[in-house]
Amino acid sequence: MSADHHHHDHDHNHGHHHDNRYTDMQARVRALETVLTEKGLIDPAAIDAIVETYETKIGPRNGAHVVAKAWSDPDFSGWLKRDATAAIASLGYAGRQGEHMRAVFNTPDTHNLVVCTLCSCYPWSVLGLPPVWYKAPAYRSRAVIDPRGVLAEFGLTLPETKKIRVWDSTAELRYLVIPERPEGTEGMSEDELAKLVSRDAMIGTAIARAESGKKRP
């Protein structure tokens, strides 16, 4: 069996409304958008571009920090494996809704992929706002049925020998993928390493690469 589907015994009809919540900052951005749109001062498309920046660039930095620290500090890595909620909270990133975190480590044999099959539970505290595709029914169903195919569509082709584990998020438990540290990054500082970690790599639809975030010469 190349894909394990870890299904958790929990009531998916309960508690999920908590996910539809704006932080003060998210709500303020929407408020500014409303004011400016009503006054005819902006095109909502301009705001979408800003929100996109928040989703893809600013939010996931917290998670990238966690990953870079795990790569650099074996003690922290061990703590993250044993008790991800506490290890992540030690860096100042705590879930607003008190949900638990679990870090799933990619290894040479196993690749991890995170989904929320029934809605869009997502580790907000470390990854910011979820991308649109994460919430899309196509991803939510196909990530379980055909994870290899989904990854290929993201441009990630894994060797057939590599096992893919799919983790189904819940309102109470969120997953953070710890990608494998790329080769050739020995001697890099935590800050440099964090730049190699993309949002998608922490969901499992990408891997960390030594050259990401840097232009090739």
Partner: peptide, 10 residues
């Protein structure tokens, strides 16, 4: 408006 958006989200 900010509070209104938060209520709307919930």
């Amino acid at each position: 408006l900010q509070q209104s958006w938060q209520r709307a989200a919930e």
